[in-house]
């Protein structure tokens, strides 16, 4: 903390600098060194050879990874939103033990993602996992249920883990949004004879809109870059069944040491993230 400069009269050569400049300097230095400079470095890496971008177009794995990232983001986001909203409304309507439910429901999202993924490996394992074990106990033939090991079921299994882990995030933000709604408009509508569904659709939902927008935006941005859970659960496999853009960038850079190509892909991801958030904002505003 720089007490010296602010306590004295600024010396002549520094007079032009605004008064609080020194307070922000350390942060500005760190941000330039750790985000601005790396960004410029990355631009040089990616655009130094435009072949990186032409190669992208014909790269089949990148295409598959992109499609799967989009599917995963869309499905998980929709499910997490619906479940999160339902849970928020449900817990909000309880009269007792609210805080117990609230605290318990938040646990999955607080765990280190690696630990959550390890827990799900113990659940999904087709031979000795507890999921197939329990199903067998109930008399289900589990020989075809291979979850993360199956070509067709792997992506869905990964999505289920994400839903389990991050529905709490939407639940938490939407709960806070619900609590912040003033009781008067709801009371007024009820007196006017609105039923519960109309009350929800015409009063609660519009008032909740800013919170919904923010929660979806934050969650979508994290989903697009999903890495940890997939790295532990499937490493992108079997084959390319759960390959995502982040995973493919990781492999390109750090397994195949092709840094320029990886940087080019990361710019595509960045552009997609920005476009997606813009689009989401527009859709939400239009409603």
């Amino acid at each position: 903390m720089n007490t010296r400069v602010t306590s004295e009269k600024p010396r002549h050569s520094w007079r032009r600098l605004p008064q609080g400049f020194w307070w922000t300097l350390p942060s500005i230095v760190v941000l330039i060194a750790l985000s601005i400079y790396p960004m410029i470095y990355s631009v040089r890496l990616a655009f130094g050879d435009l072949g990186n971008f032409t190669r992208l177009i014909s790269d089949r794995t990148f295409g598959i990874a992109t499609v799967q990232t989009i599917v995963l983001t869309a499905v998980a986001l929709a499910a997490e939103f619906v479940l999160g909203l339902a849970l928020a409304l449900l817990v909000d309507s309880l009269s007792r033990a609210k805080s117990i439910f609230r605290a318990g429901l938040l646990v999955p999202m607080l765990l280190p993602p690696v630990v959550a993924a390890v827990a799900w490996r113990l659940i999904y394992n087709p031979q000795f996992g507890v999921l197939n074990g329990t199903l067998r106990q109930l008399g289900v033939n589990t020989s075809a249920l291979t979850w993360t090991n199956g070509h067709n079921s792997a992506l869905l299994s990964v999505i289920v883990v994400d839903i389990w882990e991050w529905t709490p995030f939407l639940f938490l933000l939407l709960s806070a949004g619900l609590q912040a709604i003033p009781p008067d408009p709801i009371e007024a509508a009820r007196i006017d004879g609105a039923g519960p569904w109309r009350l929800f659709r015409d009063v609660t939902l519009p008032l909740l809109k800013p919170t919904i927008l923010l929660a979806l935006l934050l969650r979508a941005m994290d989903l697009v870059r999903i890495f940890d859970q997939i790295f532990i659960l499937t490493q992108g496999g079997p084959g390319t069944a759960t390959e995502t853009v982040s995973l493919y960038i990781y492999r390109t850079a750090f397994r195949f040491s092709n840094f320029g190509y990886a940087a080019a892909m990361s710019f595509v991801l960045l552009a997609a993230t920005m476009l997606f958030s813009r689009g989401l904002m527009r859709v939400m505003r239009a409603r």
């Binding site: 941000l31 985000s35 960004m39 941005m221 960038i249 840094f259 940087a263 710019f267 991801l269 960045l270």
Partner: peptide, 24 residues
């Protein structure tokens, strides 16, 4: 402006800056 700047650095997908950071 500063607030936006600060937030946008946080919104960057980490994989975008990791290649240059690794090389640095």
């Amino acid at each position: 402006k500063i607030g936006d700047w600060i937030l946008s650095t946080r919104m960057l997908p980490p994989i975008v800056t990791i290649v240059p950071l690794f090389l640095m």
